[in-house]
Design a protein around this nucleic acid. Structure first.
Lengths: 195, 195, 195, 195
DNA sequence: TATGAATGAGTGTTCATTCAT
DNA sequence: GATGAATGAACACTCATTCAT
């Protein structure tokens, strides 16, 4: 009873995402996933070889999703505008920040499928990371941005902003705008009028 | 059977720190700690009532360490310079970022000692956080910084910078300097000479 | 790995009862229960959330069993005859005397299922206890029994008789009869003929 | 600090008794005993070979205490009066009821000292039990009490009365008096006046 | 496909006990 | 005598994983 609609990978991913958002990586147990889907625990093994496999596949899909959006950013835009678009996309895929931790936690495992995804994920993640870095460097070379700032550092600010607790309070749009205001112009007040 | 050379709380804290840095909160198991110290698992219970107790005591010590340094920042400095000093201190205590997660994970437990530390930690953490926010607001009121940027967002940048992977590559000093350059003046290049 | 013949709650209850009778509450370890059932320890957790849950569920079932029999005692009987029937029923459910201790020992735990059963058990136990007391008082008010004897004391005699080691030697029927002979008429010999 | 008065067996027995009364057999841990005495845990092993040894020695002392009082009951008294005195003594040594359980729990242990005490205790307990039975049988033979009631059953009532929760409410004297009223004359009301 | 049933390795925790000093 | 330090066996409990049906 309850279910009986034929389970799909989609369903499993959705529940995984749900738990991931509510309780983080540690909260994702097969028991919990199965319970929420109203399915036997062992059924999940028909879809994924093991837990890491599920998690990695989920992340891979999320990553692919995101990459597609990133690829849609018009190449013609100035570098800093491209970076702004990238930031917006990142802020809509906050689960991504767990990839890092996940890849680290998995170091011991050596199941085939998992290893494959892990590699792929790593590659994808680095590709986006490097893309971001290239754009930063482009902005520098165009003379728009300062050479004196390490590109990696700026990348870190952008990438780690998905972790900021204030995102919830401010909303994605507003946060992105203000963060970019800082990145581009800094906090210093050039207004002549005293506060 | 009482053969070893005398374990100290220090020793346990050191190993805890080691593991915390290598594998994060989830990696800290009493078995692992005990193994690295070459002691029996139960021996640790002579020093700490339970795992939470150890973790919280460690964090508390770290926090106290940090707070002492924060208190030594001269009150006479301008707000932005105080924030710079604060950033430097934060970057030397990167394990701090786990306090937040830890406090959240511990919500279910109710062991006496743990609860006491938890409360204290929470208070300490908030105090530092609020101090940071007050300084940011001071800089705004003095007209030095823009009112248009949310103070919490800036706080997040500063606080989360302890997570940046590039810290290792750049070194604390250099990273702090560059991060502050961005925060104060932004990336925009006002140089007239094209690159 | 799913080889065994299918374990039922019944099986677990039976073994629990066995151990309870042989070694008392303290003797009930999941390891022992599992071993006697020739199952892995963790298998038991598929049937009961935790140890308290098992114990309480067992007791609840026992109590329900007993209460049903108690309710079948005809209300029309004189109070002392009702008490006699009650005594007979009690003597057939000797494990009951551990409920009291168990409820006390469990005070620290707060697992959901356990708490629910605990409350229920407590209510059931008190209901029977109070029923017994009411019947005793009825016998007094009808003038059949002495007002000078504390009802609680008499209740204790009846309730604690399930602990008497001699029950095994004498058999339930015989013991109940003799115990009631004492309760009603006392030991004093009113026979005129000397032994 | 604190202690330093020279520890005596007495001190240990006193604390043991304290815990035994407060928390029962399960509550007696060497750690707790040592803590209350403000002494190192290992110090206790200078006085008792192990935990069972302590417990049994404590019980042995208690038993000896009691036996001495029992032996002071004048042989010249009628059997039922002797039994009444015995009941009074029993009610003042309620910890005794744990001997039974303890002896059962110890079945596995085979430490020398413990075994010795165990045997002795068993003997002492049986001696008192048998004494009680002889008195009961004497009362029967003198024609004062009914032959039809099993002596063991009556013994059980007397012996188990130390467990009655109502003892606290009624007080030892009052409970003993009323219990004996039941035992001798029963509950039946022979008053001519209706209630 | 799906699942019910069972499991084993690992984790936190307790406690009696040992031993060098 | 006394103790500080350390330990191992036992227990409750969790969770990913397996397998016959």
């Amino acid at each position: 009873m309850g279910r009986k609609k034929a389970l799909t990978e989609r369903d499993i991913f959705d529940v995984t995402e749900e738990i991931l958002k509510e309780e983080g990586l540690q909260g994702v147990h097969f028991k919990k996933v199965a319970d929420r889907l109203d399915v036997g625990r062992s059924t999940l093994y028909e879809y994924f070889e093991n837990k890491d496999d599920l998690l990695l596949a989920y992340m891979k899909r999320l990553m692919d999703d995101m990459n597609q959006k990133v690829e849609n950013i018009p190449a013609s835009l100035p570098a800093n505008e491209k970076l702004y678009k990238l930031l917006l996309i990142l802020l809509e895929h906050t689960q991504l920040h767990q990839i890092d931790r996940m890849i680290r936690d998995l170091q011991s495992s050596d199941k085939h499928a998992a290893m494959f995804y892990k590699e792929e994920l790593d590659v994808d993640l680095m590709r986006t990371y490097n893309l971001m870095k290239r754009w930063i460097e482009a902005a520098k070379e165009q003379g728009a941005w300062k050479q004196s700032i390490d590109s990696g550092l700026l990348g870190d600010i952008i990438f780690h902003s998905i972790l900021f607790p204030n995102r919830e309070k401010m909303g994605v749009e507003s946060m992105a705008r203000q963060l970019f205001e800082i990145i581009e112009n800094g906090m210093t007040n050039h207004d002549s009028s005293p506060s």
